[in-house]
Design a protein around this nucleic acid. Structure first.
Length: 110
DNA sequence: AAGGTGACTAACA
DNA sequence: ATGTTAGCCACCT
């Protein structure tokens, strides 16, 4: 199979695309699905330089505490929060999402 | 080309 | 309880 330029990135992207609407997931979950249980940083790193993730629901990707990690001006929490709210996901005033309610762990209800 | 950084997570002291 | 160390690998300079 012809794999992408770097494989892992493409794999992560595919997983992110599987995140159902109105749900959020964590870097660790995605990295694990991508084959790297400890590759959470890669997910963040990839999304930080996301040049091909224009169609990706990157806003559904948050850290293990349900908190929006983005601190860069390029990726303001404010924007991510707005996107999450746009999907019907409640976001705390501190940019915290209730993973117990909106957390997605790889189970797709078809 | 090589080194450093990074939107993370977990374990150890 | 908090602070530090270790690990993953792609992207940038």
């Amino acid at each position: 199979m012809a794999k992408g330029p770097t494989g892992f990135k493409q794999r992560v992207i595919q997983i992110i695309k599987q995140v159902p609407f109105g749900k959020v997931t964590t870097y660790g979950t995605i990295s694990t699905f991508a084959g790297l249980p400890r590759g959470a940083r890669l997910v963040g790193g990839i999304l930080h330089f996301n040049t091909e993730a224009l169609d990706l629901p990157w806003h559904r990707i948050i850290n293990r505490h349900g908190f929006i990690s983005t601190n860069c001006l390029e990726h303001p929490k404010q924007a991510q929060k707005a996107l999450l709210l746009s999907e019907g996901i409640e976001v705390s005033d501190d940019f915290i999402v209730d993973l117990k309610q909106y957390g997605w762990w790889g189970e797709i209800n078809d």
